[in-house]
């Protein structure tokens, strides 16, 4: 079943989620059971059962980022983006989530959009993203 995660990542990108139908399709493709595919899909946070936004905004909640004001930035992001932690906006434009260490403690508190590091979260950066992300 090598390559299942890569295929699932592609499905997640296309559908913004991995549905039970997707899982059944992948099971056929990889000659395995739907149960196995479901197990994989629900184990990894990269895959979601419900559609995420067109853009996924992530804010790191690792220790170094907490020391540099991550909680304050998370509150600001929720207000500015209009989405609570772990939720997706009603128009499907964006999702916001605080994430485990993003491996960017040198620009704490680290902010990513669609797995792209944007740098340290500031009010100005979040204002910009709120306006620009379509």
């Amino acid at each position: 079943m090598m390559g299942l995660l890569e295929a699932m990542r592609q499905v997640q990108e296309w559908h913004r989620c991995v549905t039970l139908e997707d899982e059944a399709f992948l099971a056929g493709l990889f000659k395995t059971t739907a149960a196995h595919v479901h197990e994989v899909a629900t184990f990894y946070p990269a895959f979601t059962a419900k559609p995420v936004g067109r853009h996924r905004v992530g804010l790191c909640r690792g220790l170094s980022c907490q020391l540099k004001g991550a909680p304050r930035m998370a509150a600001y992001a929720e207000k500015k983006l209009g989405v609570r932690d772990g939720q997706t906006s009603a128009d499907g434009r964006l999702s916001f989530e605080t994430m485990e260490c993003l491996g960017a403690c040198d620009c704490a508190p680290a902010l990513t959009v669609d797995d792209e590091l944007q740098g340290a979260a500031t009010e100005a950066l979040l204002d910009k993203l709120a306006a620009e992300l379509k």
């Binding site: 170094s64 260490c101 960017a104």
Partner: peptide, 12 residues
């Protein structure tokens, strides 16, 4: 798969 909080050298 650098994921330990505090580690980012592999990314750089």
């Amino acid at each position: 798969d650098e994921s330990e909080p505090g580690c980012f050298r592999d990314r750089v």
